[in-house]
């Protein structure tokens, strides 16, 4: 029971299909999840497809995030799924773009050339999952300390941590 009006959903679906048809070789999967039109795309084609959406009027990147499928009963194609939620102010429509990213090579191209919002969204995604965004101008950790050794939102990282809380490096006055 999504609050997206039917007209907005129809518009989003139409654009998703049109953009998907332009990238025949990418075999874009257009579907619906929780009332939002979704596009599942191969990661090599994620940025060209997002760019096509940007050109089609999707000027607002709502969020960039990811999830780790490690402990799902029905795992996805790869371990990580990166999500881009985009919205078009002019068309008043929303599309949810997803791409699978493998564990051994967790990288995908940056969307920060299309939307400035991706600058911080991708930094957080890297901070929490270790997914690298190629071409990002400043891919540093943003919420966790710089010297934190793990990616805390991965499913193999325990809730109570690995003792980082008690083992912060101590710098005394005479050593500084």
């Amino acid at each position: 029971m999504s609050r997206e009006p039917d007209a907005a959903r129809a518009r989003a679906r139409e654009i998703a299909l049109r953009v998907g048809n332009r990238f025949v070789e990418a075999a874009v999967l257009v579907g619906e999840a929780g009332g939002t039109t979704t596009m599942t795309v191969p990661r090599d084609h994620a940025i060209p497809i997002l760019e096509a959406l940007r050109v089609a009027g999707f000027d607002y990147l709502v969020d960039v995030t990811a999830h780790d499928t490690l402990k799902l009963e029905e795992p996805g194609e790869e371990r990580f799924c990166v999500h881009w939620i985009v919205h078009a102010y002019g068309l008043d429509a929303r599309i949810h773009v997803r791409a699978w990213v493998p564990e051994d090579d967790p990288r995908v191209e940056t969307a920060s050339v299309l939307w400035k919002a991706a600058l911080w969204g991708e930094r957080e995604c890297y901070d929490m999952y270790g997914i690298e965004f190629d071409g990002h101008p400043d891919l540093r950790r943003i919420l966790m300390p710089e010297d934190f050794g793990a990616f805390p939102l991965r499913k193999d990282y325990p809730l109570k941590g690995r003792g980082e809380r008690d083992n912060f490096p101590v710098i005394t006055r005479d050593k500084a």
Partner: peptide, 19 residues
């Protein structure tokens, strides 16, 4: 499934993506 929903909090769009 995956569900995204947002409300207007005093600072702006407060969204929740629940997997």
């Amino acid at each position: 499934g995956e569900f995204y929903s947002a409300t207007e909090s005093p600072n702006g769009e407060l969204g929740w993506l629940i997997v």
